[in-house]
Computed example of a mutant assay.
Amino acid sequence: MTKILNPLTPDEAARRLAEGRAVMIDIREADEFARRRARGARSRPLSSLDAGGLNLEGGRPDALEVIFTCRSGMRTGANGARLAAACEGPAHVLEGGLDAWDRAGLPVETDAKAPLEMMRQVQIVAGLLVLTGVILGLAVSPWFLGVAGFVGAGLTFAGVTGFCGMARLLALAPWNRPARA
């Protein structure tokens, strides 16, 4: 029998957390979690879940209920069976994710100094490159339309292969490197 994730409203999830019955696991990537998260949530990125399982550090997975969350609830919903299989005890999904948690007025921690999530950085740079290529293509020379084509080809390649060269380049930017002590 396959385990499923039971949906919980933000208020019900908060009650279970306050009672000490549950732990909240945020499955977003580390850069997303660093910028904004539910207070008390633990980061276990979906991309590393298979490699390390669900290590709760300080609480046995079978002794606690697990409430999985992401930003909107889409990622947890799409990976429900995989997430439920990662824990021994009852598993839940936060309906509406972090966005619903925030709308319910529940505590959210924000670090405005953390860099924008890598995917948003890629979207901004790709959008600006396409826009610049189209404007220059119309105003200066049609050859600049090649910039838009190149970016489109790169995004298609990233979607098909899972490798995003632009994200790799942006990761080297000074604002994405850890501060030196």
Score class of each variant (00 low, 15 high):
D111R: 13
G96Q: 09
V134I: 15
A78P: 00
G73C: 09
W143G: 13
L138C: 02
A153C: 12
R120P: 00
C87D: 02
G73Q: 11
M74E: 12
V122G: 07
E117A: 15
A104L: 05
G80I: 09
A86S: 15
M74R: 13
G77S: 12
R103C: 02
M118R: 06
A148H: 01
D62I: 02
T110N: 07
L138A: 13
L145A: 12
V130L: 06
Q123N: 09
V147E: 01
G133Y: 10
K113Q: 12
V66K: 14
V134Y: 11
D111C: 10
L106I: 14
W101V: 02
L128Q: 07
D102M: 00
G152F: 03
R120D: 03
P115N: 04
F144T: 06
S141H: 15
L94K: 06
M119Q: 13
M118C: 01
S72A: 15
V130K: 01
E95T: 15
A114F: 11
H92G: 07
A85G: 14
I124G: 01
L83S: 07
L116G: 00
L64P: 05
G105V: 10
R103W: 01
L116A: 13
V130G: 01
D99E: 12
S141P: 09
E65H: 14
A112R: 12
M118S: 09
D102H: 12
G58R: 07
P115G: 10
R82D: 11
Q123K: 10
T69K: 05
V130D: 01
G137K: 09
E117M: 14
A100Q: 02
A84Q: 07
V151R: 09
L131D: 05
A153S: 15
H92D: 00
C70F: 02
P115A: 13
D62K: 12
V66T: 15
L145R: 12
G149Q: 06
V147P: 05
E95P: 04
T110F: 12
G97Y: 10
V108W: 10
S72G: 13
G80P: 13
A91Y: 07
L155H: 02
G133I: 01
P90S: 13
P90Y: 00
L128M: 14
G127F: 03
R71I: 00
L98Y: 04
G149S: 08
F150C: 10
D62N: 12
E117H: 06
A84C: 07
G58K: 10
D111Q: 08
Q121T: 03
T69Q: 14
P107D: 10
C70R: 07
E65G: 13
V140P: 06
L155K: 03
L129N: 02
W101N: 04
G146V: 01
E88L: 09
N79A: 15
G137W: 10
G105T: 12
R82Q: 13
V93W: 04
L129M: 14
V134K: 03
V151K: 09
R71C: 00
L116Y: 11
L128E: 02
V140F: 06
S72P: 14
F157K: 02
R120Y: 04
L136R: 03
A153W: 08
